[in-house]
Each structure stands twice: as structure tokens, then as C-alpha cells.
């Protein structure tokens, strides 16, 4: 069986999917990166192929903020930005969709679809309030599991007013409301509303949010945020079954299409990467005023990839050496 691998290396989670050549999902995995993307990809790959028999990886796509590094490390056939990857997966599953709301660890995106094509998109620029990391942080402060956080928020019927413009001010507002004696569920519901309003003011400004609206990304698991969106938008939200791995799904679909239509053979380096020792180190290149922070990736003792140099001085060198070796 030919399978296609999609990996989404995000700020908070590492997601992996395997699809077949019909684009159907075979395996999926959502894993917390815990600040170590390489280790979590290794761990994830080991889990995802466990007990899988008679298969062959025919193509690999990576996406997410770590797409370049992981792509180089494992030998991806296609490296794609997460906005396109999310839109591709969503359109594959729900061709009728008009609006995609995606909230991940540190990014939020609004993608508008018209006649089955991406017509407009917006992504948060200077503010990350309302994304998964902030919710995580608040849950930790309240000593709650993130899953309970969402469920509790969903039971709050009188959301309190909280300033959602800035994560720090939102937090001090929450503390103040706690000290005033408001019940926890109303405070959490208020926080969810504030964050949703922040999303709509930042990304939705001047844009028509038309149904069907799909909500995906890790934060779509949060009942409180879901409910707040529905209340404020006045539309029911659709949550795809694969909501938490849509980026990886999109990357796999893109890789599958690329490999099949171009009849290419994969550059995937194989699953032995799971057991290799991968180390990273970095240095500041002082060859010019750019002063790039260059990252070196070593597999065992061998340098396998360089990233971060604007001019290609280091990364091209690896490519040349790599060619010489093979």
C-alpha cells in the first residue's frame, strides 16, 4: 500500500497524518511539541507507523513554522506554508465551505473561500492574544487541565466583561474579576468572548464571515471558544473530525498530488531517523551585515542541514557536500 505522510510542526503541537492514494486518512496523531520539535517528530513517527504492515511511503509534505527544518531533516518532497495547507485540507473535506477559522498555538487565521477557491485571508501579525499558548498559560495559572478549561467556560451563562486586546491586560482583568467574586465559569466564558471578539476585530475587519463556517486547529477543541464564536457570529460552526491535524492533512494531500501527477519518487530518508541522535547548534554568521543566526543540524556526527542563512552560504554548502557523498 502506498502512503503519503504529512507533518505539521507547529509552535505547540506536532501533528502527523498518513493518507492513502485516494486522499483518505489512514492514521493521525496530535502530539505536544514541548519545545523540542525534532524529538516530537521522532516520537510521533514511531507511534504513527506502529503495527502498520505492508506499506511504502511514496511522498512526504511538511508544513507549520518548523516546516523547513523538519523538511530538510527527513527529506520532504514538498514544504508548504500552513495557510495553504489548511485551506487545501478543508476544501478537500468540505468543498462547500465559505469561511475557515483556524486557531493554533501562536497563530490565528481567517480564510475566506469563494467559488471553491481561497479568496482572501488574514493572519494575526502583532498580537497573539487568543491563541492556544495563551489559553494554555491561563489554564496552568488556574491549575486546570486545558480540556476542563473549555468545558467549564461553556457552562458560563453570564460571561463577564474582560479586555481581550492584550494577553497581559486580559490576565489582570481576570484576576480582578476573581477577586470581585465572580464564579469561575462566567470568568472563563468572558475570557473566551473577549478573545473571540479580538479575533473578529483583528482579522475579520471589513470582511464578510459567511456560512458554512469551519473551525479548525487545536483551539477548536475548546468548547468555550466554540460557543463564544457561535454567539458572536450568529452562525453554527462546523468542526471537522480531523480538526486538530488539518495542516498535516493538507501537507499530505499536496505531497500526494505532487508525487502522483509528476510521477516522482520520494526524497524521504526513511524511518531510521526515529532512532538517530539528532543534535542542533547555532552560531551568528558575521560574513555580512545581515548577521544571520545559522542553525546546524547534525545526525550522529554528520552535518545534515543548515538553516537561517539569508544568502545560502551555509545551506548551499551542505547541498553540494550532500551531492558529493551520494
Amino acid at each position: 500500500m502506498k502512503l503519503y505522510l504529512g507533518i505539521d510542526v507547529g509552535s505547540v503541537s506536532t501533528n502527523i497524518v498518513l493518507i492513502d492514494n485516494q486522499g483518505k486518512l489512514v492514521r493521525k496523531l496530535y502530539l505536544r511539541s514541548q519545545g523540542n520539535p525534532v524529538a516530537s517528530v521522532q516520537k510521533g513517527l514511531a507511534q504513527v507507523i506502529k503495527e502498520l504492515k505492508d506499506y511504502e511511503i511514496a511522498g512526504v509534505g511538511t508544513t507549520g513554522s518548523g516546516r523547513q527544518m523538519i523538511g530538510k531533516l527527513i527529506g520532504a518532497d514538498l514544504i508548504k506554508n500552513e495557510i495553504t495547507a489548511h485551506a487545501v485540507a478543508c476544501l478537500h473535506l468540505e468543498p462547500e465551505v465559505r469561511t475557515i477559522i483556524e486557531i493554533g498555538g501562536q497563530d490565528s487565521k481567517l480564510i475566506l473561500i469563494k467559488d471553491g477557491i481561497v479568496n482572501d485571508f488574514a493572519m494575526n501579525t502583532v498580537c497573539a492574544a487568543g491563541t492556544g499558548s495563551f489559553l494554555d498559560q491561563q489554564a496552568a495559572r488556574l491549575q486546570m487541565e486545558i480540556a476542563d478549561f473549555g468545558n467549564t467556560a461553556a457552562t458560563g451563562n453570564h460571561p463577564v466583561r474582560i479586555a481581550g486586546r492584550c494577553a497581559v491586560f486580559a490576565e489582570s482583568d481576570m484576576i480582578h474579576k476573581q477577586q470581585m467574586g465572580h464564579p469561575m465559569e462566567d470568568i472563563l466564558a468572558g475570557l473566551c468572548e473577549a478573545l473571540v471578539r479580538n479575533f473578529i476585530n483583528n482579522l475579520g475587519k471589513g470582511r464578510d464571515i459567511k456560512p458554512p463556517v469551519i473551525f479548525q486547529g487545536g483551539v477548536a477543541a475548546n468548547q468555550g471558544i466554540r460557543k463564544a464564536f457561535e454567539r458572536i457570529l450568529g452562525h453554527k460552526l462546523l468542526i471537522p473530525e480531523q480538526f486538530d491535524v488539518m495542516g498535516a492533512y493538507g501537507a499530505a494531500l499536496l505531497a500526494q498530488n505532487e508525487m502522483m501527477s509528476q510521477k516522482l519518487s520520494t526524497k524521504f530518508k526513511g524511518f531510521q531517523i526515529i532512532n538517530e541522535t539528532i543534535t542542533t547548534s547555532s552560531f551568528d554568521c558575521d560574513a555580512c551585515a545581515n548577521q544571520c543566526e545559522v542553525v546546524e543540524l547534525r545526525q550522529g556526527n554528520q552535518l545534515v542541514a543548515c538553516l537561517g542563512d539569508k544568502c545560502g552560504k551555509w545551506s548551499n554548502q551542505i547541498m553540494e557536500e550532500g551531492l558529493a557523498i551520494s
Partner: peptide, 26 residues
């Protein structure tokens, strides 16, 4: 953001000529 924007523009242009999403963006 630039990559996604360019993908979107490429797709819009090709859609007006009848192209397919996956082909264009990959």
C-alpha cells in the same frame, strides 16, 4: 504570509482559466 498570498493569487488566476487547486499550489 507572502507564500500563502502568492499561492492564493496563482490559484485565483488559474481558476479563472479552469485550473485545479492542488495542481496550482503544489
Amino acid at each position: 504570509r507572502l507564500e500563502a498570498f502568492v499561492d492564493m493569487l496563482a490559484y485565483r488566476r488559474s481558476r479563472s482559466r479552469g485550473g485545479e487547486l492542488l495542481e496550482v499550489v503544489s
